[in-house]
Design a protein around this nucleic acid. Structure first.
Lengths: 372, 372
DNA sequence: TTGTATGCGTTATCAG
DNA sequence: CTGATAACGCATACAA
């Protein structure tokens, strides 16, 4: 309860000046005797540096902000999980902003950099508008953008390449002998939808398959939408033998419908998703999925920001993280009762299998009640 | 790049004293003319308050920390997702600490409260040790613990009740006519393992079933472990007709093994999990699971902390959040081809179905490369 | 080596 | 109503 001790308290106790206290605390050359006295006093009083005063003086908060639409989104979560340890190792705390996908909120975050409560910002905006760019140009602290920014924007930038990602999957399906590969894409007016659609056409051309509009179906990026879309597609084209889905949720919806229709996966129809979320490994059959490298994008973004925080000025840098195909049972299945359960995660360090642990020691014995 | 303007800059520009500037900025009674001049100057200069200086003076940072083992864990994530908006609405920023389940790190976080970079802390420790309690007693800011603390610890505390949770599930299974209900529990030396084991015995007794040691199997809280354990159990007791699993991952492992063994779920064997993670809805058949109310625990914790931040002193409070059974196909199945896909989430506001959206506009057209 | 004094950007007190 | 001025807790240039 009592107000914490300051260097003044210590100085008094040790019988020295606050300057000496500060010097000892910062490891500057000081007489042994003084060091001893100061350390003793600090120990006894349980002194802890005041970070706020420190920041005011040093103009560094040792805090970095990460702003994204929604922590619940597996893609952002993957970024967060990589960003956190990188920053921590470098001595930075992490301030989390959830913008709920509201552009105005994102701009607020950019503006708030003027308050100087963080040294830098990593931001993954839904869509970069002109307003973003304006505010960005006037930002009072270094910013790294994860996502798509216009060519030439003077900002550190880390991006995915889902176009190539789609191509990886199509190549895979084609190599397995599939020839009627449909695409269940997201809305075409979204950035990812457009890119994935383009990737689909490119990939078909590359493997020498014709582009057939009949094989394209649009769905919002959710599971029920995936069900609806795949049902329609199946009704129109019952001969389809592979489904490229624009994300894992749509792919789960596809599995639902195929199961109900009595089509075996992957024997009759192979299914591939995108994003490689936890759900891909949990479903049955487990889902082949294209990882867009969210985790790595997070890590790279953090490293870029640290570089700029330490190093100072340099040219803005742009990094594109390559996609990676994670093959599981929904395309590669070895018979529908195979034991390929733990179909791994390739090479990526800590896979998703590991962290879904448990409710961790939070327990209650009965009904202690909840009132005051 | 130029250093941001301060109230001094504005004062000079407006031809008034810094005191007047501060007053205007804080809405204190001031002559209209002065207000006008100050606002004009502030606007032109793009002035933004310096949060650090403000904090130093006011002794409030408007930041709150949340410390848990791992953001990747769905339980913590659910808490985070509730905590964030509550704090944001109250004008607080959220500082995130990942302790990697290392007790020493948790204690460091408690100690670091002395640095005064946050106004309060919400912490969900793996296990509360004596060292925790000591540090807690000396904490220099209000703390809310999510989890189990010893009786009488003078700290705001929010807890789950997995014992009752297990009972809900067993009651459900018994009501469905199952009579040989096995338990695949976590290690008994963990807090959750012990509580769930106790809940299992209690529940059996309550419904009048005998406790049979043969029906209990221990597994670590992971899917491969779940597979191993259930395989053993099945070999020993092929007559089992229901499985109560201590978490969702173990339950997924159970589904794997049952499928391979040709047992139908739920017709031959019903399966229930715990934690009600995203995975429960994604699996097939979808998994009946006991929610321990992680989301609500998070929300309550945030509210308790805010109360204390605003209100000041009061008696420490303890809240127990009741568990909730979420019934899905793995116990209630309406035939194995039923359309009960979207089996809902009960009542809990925003269900998990909604947020697993997509890779959000992060795209790249090709190979811009990753070099400098 | 040590102490004194000043400033970081605000807010708040107290005369004018 | 306004303007000097003193904190807030720390770091540091400068003087001793």
């Amino acid at each position: 309860m009592a107000d914490g001790p300051t260097i003044n308290t210590i100085a008094a106790r040790a019988g020295v000046s606050i300057a000496s206290v500060s010097r000892v605390l910062n490891g500057l050359p000081t007489r042994q005797e003084t060091v001893r006295k100061v350390m003793a006093a600090a120990d006894e009083l349980g002194y802890v540096r005041n970070a706020v005063a420190r920041s005011l003086k040093s103009r560094r908060t040792h805090q970095v902000a990460f702003a994204m639409a929604d922590v619940g989104n597996p893609a952002y979560l993957a970024m967060l999980r990589e960003i956190q340890p990188v920053l921590k190792a470098a001595g930075y705390r992490l301030v989390l902003h959830s913008t709920d996908a509201v552009a105005a909120d994102e701009i607020d975050v950019l503006r708030s950099l003027g308050e100087r409560y963080v040294d830098g910002l990593i931001m993954s905006p839904l869509r970069v508008t002109d307003a973003h760019l304006e505010t960005l140009a006037a930002a009072r602290a270094p910013v790294v953008i994860i996502g798509q920014v216009p060519e030439g924007t003077p900002v550190d930038n880390v991006r995915a390449d889902s176009r190539t990602g789609v191509r990886l999957a199509i190549d895979h399906l084609h190599a397995l002998g599939r020839r009627r590969v449909a695409m269940v894409n997201g809305p075409l007016d979204t950035v990812p939808g457009a890119a994935r659609g383009a990737g689909y056409r490119e990939a078909l051309e590359a493997v020498g398959l014709p582009y057939d509009e009949d094989l394209v179906q649009i769905a919002d990026f959710y599971r029920p939408e995936g069900r609806r879309a795949v049902a329609e597609l199946l009704a129109r084209r019952p001969d389809v033998d592979a489904l490229m889905c624009a994300n894992d949720l749509i792919a789960l919806g596809a599995l639902d419908v195929l199961r109900d229709a009595g089509r075996r996966v992957p024997e009759d129809v192979a299914v591939a998703g995108m994003d490689d979320t936890d759900l891909a490994a949990a479903s049955w059959p487990s889902l082949t999925s294209v990882s867009l490298g969210s985790a790595e994008r997070g890590r790279v973004a953090a490293e870029l920001l640290l570089e700029r925080l330490n190093g100072g000025e340099r040219e803005p840098r742009r990094v594109t993280v390559p996609p990676r195909l994670v093959v599981r049972a929904s395309t590669a299945g070895e018979g529908h009762c195979g034991e390929g359960h733990g179909t791994g995660h390739g090479t990526e360090g800590h896979g998703t299998e590991g962290h879904g642990t448990e409710g961790h020691g939070t327990e209650g014995h009965g009904t202690e009640g909840s009132g005051a």
